[in-house]
């Protein structure tokens, strides 16, 4: 083949490849996987749509977000084991820490990368009782009565269960002026009244609301609202105990996976949008307490004041809580074995 023809062929191909490269560069369609805990389905379903619209307007790019839900700790373990989450939105920091300690999927300082220690909204633990509150359940003490059946998810697999456990523990400590023995007895009596241990918060809702088991469901505030909304005929009542625990729900992008998927920018923007006014407003609408005080104030009738203590105050932080209460052979295992 004459050299001129070779040059024309090569030039044409080079032009074609450059055009293809340009097309690759300009094609912008991202996919994200948000691995979350059990009771955020509805919120993130709405949030994903809002963020996709925002992202399209801002960048012109299309983003599709898939969701995965389950018990918080189980979900975290799934990510460690290979579930390729771009972002994780958990209900407690331990379940994000494990992504660092268990797989090096993100750096140890993940919580410092977003405002408020990467906690865009909070929640608390309260009670859902049956129509008319037949057992007259008002406070934590009512849950340890011998004739009361309580539904709580397993604290070893569910953040919802851990918060419920620690809320009861904290209440008992307060009541007994810090006597751990009394607290242990109180929590033991409480879990003696738990007939079924679900692995996650949504499972506990199913047990209580759909399967008709128990007199009271102990769960997150947003889940309680959802139970009322989803089962209007049951006329469930939400009882806010005078004292409960502050549930801080952190979020993070998973560095290792976003690098693999080439989704660093969109994953980060997805989480930053949680802290925006639009994200905070959506959180408030779905019964999560926004960190933005102005928006929280607008929902003052919904979020009644309650005396909230933190995990640090009642258990010395999550690391210690995990070690003392929820590790194999910890206090929960001891009291639950005793009750069986």
């Amino acid at each position: 083949m004459p050299n001129r023809i070779q040059k024309v062929v090569c030039a044409s191909l080079t032009a074609g490849l450059l055009w293809a490269a340009a097309a690759v560069g300009s094609a912008a369609e991202s996919k994200l996987l948000n691995v979350s805990y059990d009771v955020t389905r509805e919120f993130y379903s709405a949030y994903n749509k809002s963020f996709a619209d925002y992202w399209k307007t801002k960048t012109g790019d299309t983003v599709t977000v898939s969701q995965s839900h389950g018990g918080s700790s189980k979900q975290a373990q799934s990510v460690v084991n290979g579930l390729e989450a771009d972002v994780v939105t958990m209900n407690q920091p331990l379940d994000i820490d494990v992504l660092h300690t268990g797989g090096g999927l993100l750096p140890a300082n993940w919580s410092s990368r977003l405002p408020n220690k990467s906690v865009p909204y909070t929640s608390t633990i309260l009670f859902v009782v049956r129509k008319g509150n037949p057992k007259n359940i008002r406070n934590w003490d009512d849950l340890v009565q011998s004739n009361v059946s309580v539904v709580i998810p397993n604290p070893k697999t569910s953040g919802n269960g851990r918060y419920s456990y620690l809320a009861a523990w904290g209440y008992a400590l307060k009541k007994s002026a810090g006597d751990e023995k009394s607290a242990r007895e109180f929590v033991g009596n409480l879990f003696a009244n738990v007939p079924v241990l679900d692995t996650g918060g949504r499972g506990a809702t199913t047990t209580f609301a759909e399967r008709g088991i128990g007199d009271v469901l102990v769960t997150f505030e947003n889940e309680a609202a959802l139970v009322q909304k989803q089962f209007p005929d049951e006329e469930f009542l939400v009882i806010l105990p005078p004292v409960s625990i502050l549930a801080e729900n952190p979020v993070a992008w998973v560095d290792r996976n976003v690098q693999r998927h080439h989704t660093e920018a969109v994953a980060r923007a997805y989480l930053e949008y949680l802290f925006s006014d639009a994200g905070q407003e959506l959180a408030a609408q779905h019964y999560f307490r926004p960190r933005n005080q102005a928006i929280l104030a607008r929902y003052a009738t919904r979020y009644k004041p309650v005396d909230l203590f933190t995990v640090s105050e009642v258990a010395g932080g999550w690391q210690k809580a995990q070690q003392v209460h929820f590790s194999d052979g910890g206090i929960f295992d001891q009291i639950y074995q005793l009750n069986k």
Binding site: P195, V196, D198, T199, R211, G212, I213
Partner: peptide
């Protein structure tokens, strides 16, 4: 109900 739920779980 509890037995049924336990079986389900």
């Amino acid at each position: 109900r509890i037995l049924a739920r336990e079986r389900e779980l």
